[in-house]
C-alpha cells in the first residue's frame, strides 16, 4: 500500500467549501463561485488542486447539449470516492459546512 494512503488529507476551509459545493450539485466553476461567494482567482486554483489530488474529477459536457442551449460547453466536476471520504472528514472538522451549503439530499428532507 502506498505510504499515507490510510490518512485523510486535511483540507482548508475554502477547499472544503468547494468540495461541499460540488457535492451539493454546483458542478461547474461559476456555480461554485456563486454558491460560495469566492472569487474566480480562489475557486479555480483550488478546484485544480482538488483535481490533482484526485478528490474531484472533471469532464466536458457534450457539445450538442451546449449547442442546443446556445451556450458554450461546460466543464463539470464530480467528487471521487476519495473526495467523498475527505469531505466526510472535513464535515467533522468544519461542522457548519453542511449548513452553509446544504446538499441535495439535505434540501429534500
Amino acid at each position: 500500500m502506498a505510504p499515507g494512503a490510510n490518512s485523510e488529507p486535511k483540507l482548508s476551509h475554502t477547499a472544503a467549501m468547494i468540495l461541499q459545493a460540488i457535492h451539493a450539485g454546483y458542478v461547474y466553476g461559476f456555480s461554485v463561485m456563486e454558491m460560495t461567494g469566492l472569487p474566480s482567482g480562489t475557486v479555480y486554483p483550488a478546484m485544480r488542486r482538488l483535481e490533482r489530488d484526485e478528490l474531484i474529477r472533471s469532464h466536458w459536457e457534450k457539445q450538442s447539449i451546449a449547442d442546443a442551449e446556445q451556450r458554450p460547453a461546460r466543464k463539470y466536476y464530480k467528487l471521487t470516492a476519495a473526495g467523498k471520504s475527505t469531505l466526510e472528514a472535513s464535515r467533522k472538522r468544519y461542522p457548519l459546512l453542511e449548513r452553509l451549503i446544504p446538499s441535495e439530499e439535505a434540501k429534500s428532507v
Binding site: P39, S40, G41, T42, V43, Y44, P45
Partner: peptide, 8 residues
C-alpha cells in the same frame, strides 16, 4: 473574473 484567471 478575468483577472482571477491570472491567479489560476
Amino acid at each position: 473574473f478575468c483577472l482571477g484567471a491570472f491567479q489560476d
